[in-house]
Amino acid sequence: MKRNEYLETLRRELESRNIEEIEDILSYFEEMISDRVENGESEEEVIVSLGSAKKIVDSLFGSSDKEKQIKYKETEVLDDIYTGVRKIDLQVNTYHIEFIADDTDAVRVEFDEDEYTSLKITRNNDVLKIEQEDSVKGFDQLFTSLSKLFVGKVSSHRAKIFLPENEILDMHISDVNGDLDIHNIVAGEIFIETINGDMEIERCRCGKMKIKSVNGDADMKDIVLEGSFRGESVNGDFDIDMLKCEDIDIHTVNGDVDILVDGSRRDADIRIHKIMKDTNISGEGRIRLHIDTVSGDIDWDFSR
């Protein structure tokens, strides 16, 4: 097979899988073939060593074979079980959890599982309890802690939890290593405890929020809080961008604190207790500030 023929096969394979960056990929491989030929290999040799177009696309985007793709296990039709839920009690270890607002009135959970890990869902009155069950306890935790140190991020399993848009639920989350994404959720109270999981909380509205973290960073954007926020961390950073809040109270040893309060209608009382590292605060409106620090820099910027 010649170069052009090969690239054409690759193009067709990419097109058949609706991949967007086709031109980018083709010019990358075209350059590779040219460079290898320029360095003395024959075109045939190069093409054979690159492997089939299918193999390339598989290794770039994952196998197209259905059974090899991540399968989300959808809970059976459980409308009668998951409607009327008032509180979610989530306890996970390595799962990366994504909360998604849904326009139904039931809570729905989708997750991928394997022989070692799965989620167990139980219901007690209006409390829905979602727990991670590890059949090989300890090992998974050690493995993820080590690989987290080494490569930064590891979340081997993912789960999506769909929450009804018009119901106000309380969320209590206890997490070890998995990251949490909470987007577009309206909640009564959100309590999160985590060791290493990073939290991304965006466009949420809730009554009260409390985060306790050892190493996990909390990244909060466009949050409307009717009540107070309390954050505690050892190394975790707090990057907070609030549209509205009552009081903010943060205790951290080594985490960076970055607070932006925009157009808060009420007086907010911000208290920060820090031992080290820097603090940045900016905002608008009348805000009472209370900062205790041992050795950190403090910057503030209020438009009014």
């Binding site: 590779m32 390339i56 770039l60």
Partner: peptide
């Protein structure tokens, strides 16, 4: 490291 391993890394 193969060509198809390098591509996603660069991206």
């Amino acid at each position: 490291i193969s060509e198809s391993t390098l591509y996603p890394i660069l991206r």
